[in-house]
Design a protein around this nucleic acid. Structure first.
Lengths: 157, 157
DNA sequence: ATTTGTGCAAATCGTTTGCATCTGA
DNA sequence: TCAGATGCAAACGATTTGCACAAAT
């Protein structure tokens, strides 16, 4: 709940102003403004940074009264990602996460709970990196800290 | 081809000695020694550190004259991983990589070529890590450096 | 003898795609 | 009007699983 400059709140309610803001956001990246996209965008961006799976987003959409097919959810997520509105995070072979935080940052991942937690970029310092192989450029550096539930059977002071 | 202390060469040829060494390795982690396992282990461990997909390993197995079903390849890889002989690396939603290097280290990943490259642990320095959420312990820190083919249209000194 | 592994094919699961039909610019 | 979007269901590709048979302890 700290400030998140790159993912400004656009409005928790889908008011006329919110629709307008979202429409601009879509238009700015060359996406046509359609009702499903607008409402999925609203679900994704209304409350700041979040991680979402395609399935979870569809459930949310249904719950909010929006009838969208899973295919459209996937298409929309992929388009948003291609447009730079989302970033895909790959931490689990089973499912893909889409992250509304597109700034440089890192993640905790709790495999047992299939839960992703953001780490602010400045909370991790990567002091030294190897040279890239010749002919390749660094696209992005990802740090993933895999977590386990604390083991209560070990040391307890 | 530098030294790799945790993944000693066991022998490039499947000699009696190599079979014996591999059998010990399997036995040491509580896995029954069977012909398919022995020969898959040989393919995996004979030449030091490597990354392999289930499909690639099966192709290799076939090429070496070993007839194994894809199911057995998956079962074997999963068992080896559960036993700590391999580590699964998750960088691409499409396929899983198994890494014979189980020491702490990191990776370059070239998405366009579906290629993983090891980075020695000491080539990366993570100077500062955030505290783990309460109730969770760090299992492991993974650094993934995603690479792109160098863009020849940019600057060329 | 009993437990564990293997092959095969069918089943699963997330994700993508083809196509007919709507919809927004 | 008409390119682009959506829904639906079928297609897909990687991985898993059920079951009969084979091999290891």
């Amino acid at each position: 709940m700290t400030l998140s400059p790159a993912t400004p709140h656009i409005g928790a309610e889908l008011t006329k102003e919110t629709r307008h803001a979202l429409a601009s956001k879509l238009g700015a990246v060359g996406l046509r403004v359609t009702e499903p996209r607008l409402r999925l965008a609203h679900l994704l961006f209304r409350h700041g940074d979040r991680h979402v799976t395609a399935e979870a987003l569809r459930d949310e959409a249904q719950a909010s009264g929006l009838k969208v097919s899973q295919a459209t959810v996937y298409n929309t997520l992929n388009q948003f990602q291609a447009a730079g509105l989302l970033r895909q995070v790959q931490v689990d072979q089973a499912r893909s996460y889409f992250d509304t935080n597109i700034d440089m940052h890192h993640h905790f991942y709790v495999e047992q709970e299939a839960r992703l937690i953001d780490i602010a970029a400045n909370a991790v310092e990567v002091a030294r990196l190897p040279d890239s192989p010749k002919g390749y450029d660094v696209d992005r550096v990802e740090v993933i800290i895999r977590l386990d539930k604390a083991d209560s059977t070990s040391d307890k002071p």
